[in-house]
Simulated assay, not measured.
Amino acid sequence: MTDAYVFTPPPRPSVAVAGDDRRFPVRRIFCVALNYADHAREMGKDPGAEPPFFFTKPADAIVANDATIPFPSLTNDLHHEIELVVALQAGGENIDPGRALDCVYGYAAGIDLTRRDLQTAARNAGRPWDMSKGFDNSAPIGAIRTATEIGHPTAGRIALSVNGAPRQQGDLSDLIWSVPQIIAALSAHVALAAGDLIFTGTPSGVGAMRPGDVAEGEIAGVGAVRVTLAR
């Protein structure tokens, strides 16, 4: 028997796969905060005292590469954060770090857009800051390249520019938690599954964007992502 719905369900969010007409269906989006020491410091944190932690975005926050999106509401301080994104083909609970990479389908470059003023206000009030991270169009992402093609990157330049001017630059080797460690730690909190995306953290240099700005990110050996804020 086919399920009946009271209205037509929305289309499932998905991401392009490089060299493949098929798309990667998105189940959930997880993100790692403060996973580069230099970024933790620029946010006023001690990376040695506070380990990285997790937050989420809704799956429909996904934005296709090279899209133009509206400037988000309720913010005067929208920040860019370039990140390596891990796409999972399998999951489970309490995954051993030694087999974590078996769960990885591939990798992409993504941008975690953040309403920094909302995040700061919520944090100072001791409230959740979901709305600073999980708003509409907050997860631009480039095409996924499979691990079969590129392997599992552990080093390489990660950078972002705005209107051609360099803003962020780091190296994947500077991640505090590696990809296997992230998958293992996250799977202790929730059961992971095929279709999950994990944004792994951002290097220092995060900063504000304005209407009309174009952000371009790239990760060596992985790919690129580009997003324009409408005027």
Rank of each mutant, 00 (worst) to 15 (best):
2 T>E: 13
2 T>Q: 09
3 D>Q: 14
7 F>A: 13
9 P>S: 07
10 P>D: 09
10 P>T: 09
10 P>A: 15
11 P>G: 02
12 R>Q: 09
16 A>F: 01
17 V>E: 01
17 V>Q: 01
18 A>E: 14
24 F>N: 05
25 P>N: 10
26 V>Y: 04
27 R>G: 11
27 R>C: 02
30 F>A: 05
31 C>Q: 00
33 A>F: 02
39 H>V: 01
40 A>D: 00
40 A>P: 01
44 G>H: 05
47 P>W: 00
48 G>P: 04
52 P>F: 08
53 F>I: 04
54 F>T: 08
56 T>D: 03
57 K>Q: 10
62 I>C: 00
63 V>I: 11
63 V>C: 05
65 N>K: 08
65 N>G: 15
68 T>S: 15
69 I>H: 10
70 P>H: 13
71 F>I: 01
73 S>C: 02
78 L>K: 04
81 E>V: 05
86 V>H: 06
87 A>W: 06
90 A>S: 13
91 G>K: 03
92 G>I: 03
92 G>N: 08
93 E>N: 15
95 I>H: 09
96 D>R: 07
100 A>P: 00
103 C>R: 06
104 V>A: 05
104 V>N: 07
105 Y>D: 00
107 Y>K: 10
113 L>A: 13
113 L>W: 12
115 R>Y: 06
121 A>N: 05
123 R>Y: 01
125 A>T: 12
129 W>L: 08
131 M>V: 12
136 D>R: 03
136 D>G: 03
139 A>M: 06
139 A>S: 13
141 I>G: 04
145 R>H: 11
145 R>P: 07
146 T>Q: 07
148 T>L: 14
149 E>V: 14
151 G>R: 10
152 H>T: 13
153 P>D: 11
153 P>M: 10
157 R>D: 15
157 R>F: 01
158 I>Q: 06
158 I>S: 03
159 A>H: 10
159 A>L: 02
159 A>D: 08
161 S>I: 09
162 V>N: 07
162 V>H: 11
163 N>I: 13
164 G>E: 14
164 G>H: 12
164 G>P: 14
165 A>R: 14
167 R>A: 11
169 Q>P: 00
172 L>G: 01
172 L>T: 05
173 S>W: 04
176 I>Y: 07
183 I>T: 04
184 A>I: 05
184 A>P: 03
186 L>M: 03
190 V>E: 11
192 L>I: 14
192 L>H: 12
197 L>S: 13
197 L>H: 09
199 F>V: 06
204 S>F: 04
208 A>D: 09
209 M>Y: 04
212 G>K: 11
213 D>T: 07
214 V>E: 14
214 V>K: 14
215 A>K: 02
216 E>A: 12
217 G>V: 07
219 I>D: 09
221 G>K: 00
221 G>M: 06
221 G>R: 02
226 R>A: 12
229 L>R: 04
